Simulated scan of single mutants.
Amino acid sequence: MLPAATTPPFPFVEGALFLIDKPQGWTSFDVVNKLRWKIRKHLGIKKYKVGHAGTLDPMATGLLSLCVGKWTKRLQELEGLDKEYTGTIRLGATTPSYDAETEIDETYPTDHLDLALLQRAAAGFLGEIEQLPPVYSAIKVDGQPLYKRARRGEKIAVKPRSVRVDRFELSNFTGETVDFTVSCGKGTYIRSLAFDLGEAVGSGGHLIALRRTAVGPYRVEDAWQLEELLEAIGDPAS
């Protein structure tokens, strides 16, 4: 049985699961480090375990699952859960990172696009597919994250991986941007879906907004805002 999200009073000694709505601009490790610092300060100890169950890019917001204390042993139970995302793709341009974190490197025409064409292309990515992860990713090759090598300008051969996409719905096409909802299995890169969709319709594309709305049965509506959680933990226990 999956663990239930923790509510006050927080059982830091026994372990807990926290659902956090990650702010934009924060890395997943920023959130882990901030929560670890707060709990250590609250308990008055030097070491305490905190880990997350699935990275979100700094640009993204939404549901981040963190296990603390003894419950860090349960992270594997959460890492394999299906995920749901919403966001926006910009068409007509690509970037090296497949999102807005790097500069546009090529532009394409978009006059031929309409929502029906995009929806037909999106249907081609449903089911078990082979996906090429972005070179700007945390995947490790020879012990080093790919994004570090990409930032040094190294040429990197990335191997495709099998992923599963259960839902890829598009809406609100403006002529240049389109909104989406994706439900998928473990290891799916939404940035790659954005890039591949643009390639499929001959216009290029990259991700400009992403929000994780669900991980398995856990919903972002039930998550803490980070600052509210830190305030709820409070000052050192007397």
Rank of each mutant, 00 (worst) to 15 (best):
A214I: 03
H206T: 06
N172I: 01
L229Y: 03
D99M: 04
P236K: 04
I129V: 13
P58A: 06
P145K: 05
S137M: 05
G234I: 06
D235G: 00
H112F: 12
I89D: 06
R152F: 03
K155Q: 14
F29V: 02
A121P: 06
F12D: 02
I89Q: 07
F10Q: 01
M1S: 12
E14V: 03
K73N: 11
S97Q: 05
A194V: 09
S137N: 08
I190W: 07
I20L: 14
A60V: 10
L63I: 06
I156H: 07
G62W: 14
L75G: 02
D111P: 02
I39T: 02
T94H: 05
A123W: 04
A121F: 04
S183R: 15
L56M: 05
P96N: 08
G54T: 07
G69C: 08
R90G: 00
A237H: 13
S137C: 07
D235F: 12
H112R: 00
Q24D: 01
T88I: 15
D222E: 15
K46A: 12
W37E: 11
G80R: 13
L91I: 03
V215K: 01
T94N: 13
R40H: 02
K155G: 01
I233Y: 11
I233K: 09
Y48K: 10
K70E: 12
L226F: 10
A4R: 12
L226P: 09
R191H: 09
D142E: 15
A200G: 03
G44Y: 07
A100H: 01
T86R: 13
H206V: 09
K41L: 06
N33H: 14
E103A: 15
V165K: 08
R36N: 05
V13Q: 14
V165H: 09
T95W: 09
R74A: 15
V13R: 14
G87P: 11
Y147N: 01
Q225I: 12
W71D: 15
G185H: 10
Y147C: 02
L78E: 06
P217V: 02
K34F: 10
E84G: 14
V13Y: 11
R40Y: 09
S137G: 08
K83W: 12
R191E: 09
V220T: 10
H52W: 10
N33D: 13
